[in-house]
Amino acid sequence: METTPWESELTERLRRVFGEQILEFASYLGQNFLVARPEAVVPILQYLRDEVGFDYLVDVTAVDYPEREERFDLIYIVYSFSRNERIRIKTRIREGFEPQTATVVHPTANWLEREVYDMFGIRFAQHPDMRRILLPDDWEGHPLRKDYNILDMDNRWVKDNLGIESGQ
């Protein structure tokens, strides 16, 4: 991704407050994002909400890169009504790491984080209700991981339930 640096009054402020915790400020296709250490994400969200006015958490999602040591990208999108600005906060976490929940800052993170858990198996620490949300409770695996093979799933289902080879 060919990003350009993101410099503004906001990045100055964040740099002053969080220093080393924020690894990168960048911009791609005119959309600004920052990369932070996992522990810093919730404090950054809190700061952005209380001091800058980013009071609307648009989305929480993840991307899986199985070949990377820090396997998952966790992405928070926040928007500010007063500034009419949308930014992304990205962090990288390894398998098994439990990031802090953002529900204390934005209650809407509740379901969004449950969906991330459901689809990627990332558990959020201190989340009030860390259960699957879309899939049944006894579902095996986390479908949006790259190593979750839909063809294998289908073959296994056919074999278990119909007793034949699916031939796919």
Binding site: M1, E2, Y28, L29, Q31, V58, D59, I77, R86, R88
Partner: peptide, 16 residues
């Protein structure tokens, strides 16, 4: 290679 978030005003709210 890259990523983008685009949202529109769908009848029900922000669809991104």
């Amino acid at each position: 290679v890259g990523e983008a978030y685009v949202s529109i005003e769908a009848p029900k709210g922000e669809l991104g």
